[in-house]
Design a binder for these strands. Structure first.
Length: 111
DNA sequence: AACCTGACGACGC
DNA sequence: GGCGTCGCCAGGT
């Protein structure tokens, strides 16, 4: 269990993100589904936005991207989107010329 | 309570 | 495949 707190659904989401393996990526919708919250992709995104600082090491937040295979951009992220891409490239995840990841190659496919 | 705003996504054109 | 629309839901005002 991770940081129960007032947001149990967030905790459920973080638990699933923890399972995304090195060098692979998962979509927000996929994370929500595996957390038992089908259709709550937005909640997954909201949870990631509010990821507690102290969980950044144990939860591979950078491996979560949107269904288009892109790192989600938002003004409010203030550069964290660029950091996310760096971390993924460090793991061998490739981006095409338009900043997209081939989900067929790098998408996480849990057993 | 009403309304607005997103690290989203399926669908239609 | 790009783009707009429409559901979606939690939080904040």
């Amino acid at each position: 269990m991770v940081n129960p707190g007032p947001h149990d659904k967030h905790a459920l989401i973080f638990e699933v993100v923890r399972e995304v393996p090195y060098g692979k990526v998962a979509t927000y919708g996929q994370i929500a589904l595996l957390a038992g919250l089908p259709g709550h992709a937005r909640l997954a995104g909201y949870a990631m936005f509010n990821l507690p600082e102290d969980l950044a090491d144990s939860v591979p937040w950078h491996r979560v991207i949107n269904s288009q295979g892109r790192v989600s951009y938002s003004e409010s992220r203030r550069g964290n989107d660029h950091r996310q891409r760096e971390l993924l490239e460090q793991e061998g995840v490739e981006f095409d010329s338009r900043g997209r990841i081939d989900l067929a190659r790098f998408g996480w496919k849990p057993e």
